[in-house]
Design a protein around this nucleic acid. Structure first.
Lengths: 124, 124
DNA sequence: GAGACGTGGTATTTATTTTAGACCATAGCC
DNA sequence: GGCTATGGTCTAAAATAAATACCACGTCTC
């Protein structure tokens, strides 16, 4: 079974595959940062705020590999590298916007739920 | 600064706060499983497929705490525990559906991008 | 000309998280 | 008696993330 090559051509469930890429700590934040335009590596570090260079590097590589972003190297001195969304990346902003709107709309309810949960579980 | 209580009342950026909860490996998959209706603990284990009991337990607790799901214990023998979406959880299905539709629509392009990336980076 | 700073990262070490698996009491089935 | 199932928790090992130092190169300041 595992030595059957055809298994590597079987694509996994699209939902699961995409959620796997999206469902990590940094990808969405990086895409959100790039939604406003092209940024350089250190601009992204500052823009996201609390991401380490290493994790940014990894996240960018994954997003590039999956076609969400494009990396352009300008061989100047000092080196300049720019990251921008591809068409796939841009098209992803649409469903992500739905997520963000939902977040803004329902954040208060979530905070409230947390407080009630804490209250309900404090007196045991 | 850290001993100033008021800091705990300052809510973080809603986007970041919500994405933090959503942006993990299992939450979306669990919510997706529950979108079809109430499920018991072990039904969820089997439904999600490759989640460990421990991570399911943790994920469910977080989702419950944030008000996405409701846990109901039936003190039978053997014990029965049911998980279902709350109103908040149900309302979240809407933006998530956008994500899923996008995933289905663009999955092929992502797979293609991966192949091209691999091709472009194999001959160096 | 020595030191600090900025560029885009990588390497290493440490801390955190995830996973796999055993384990629990209880009961039904055969 | 032994296997199954229930809903989890505990522990130890593996994988991942974070913190930090470092690189070559150039500019600015003193």
């Amino acid at each position: 079974m595992t030595d059957n090559q055809s298994i590597s051509f079987e694509q996994p469930c699209p939902i699961r595959d995409v959620l796997d890429r999206i469902g990590d700590k940094w990808s969405l934040l990086v895409l959100h940062s790039l939604s406003e335009g092209t940024l350089r590596f250190n601009e992204l570090v500052r823009n996201v705020g609390d991401i380490s260079k290493q994790m940014l590097s990894k996240t960018l590589k994954r997003l590039e590999k999956d076609g969400f972003i494009k990396r352009t190297l300008f061989p100047e001195v000092p080196l300049r590298v720019e990251y921008e969304l591809t068409d796939i990346g841009k098209s992803f902003l649409e469903p992500m916007a739905g997520l963000i709107i939902w977040a803004n709309t329902n954040h208060q309810d979530i905070v409230l739920a947390r407080q009630q949960y804490q209250l309900a579980n404090s007196n045991r």
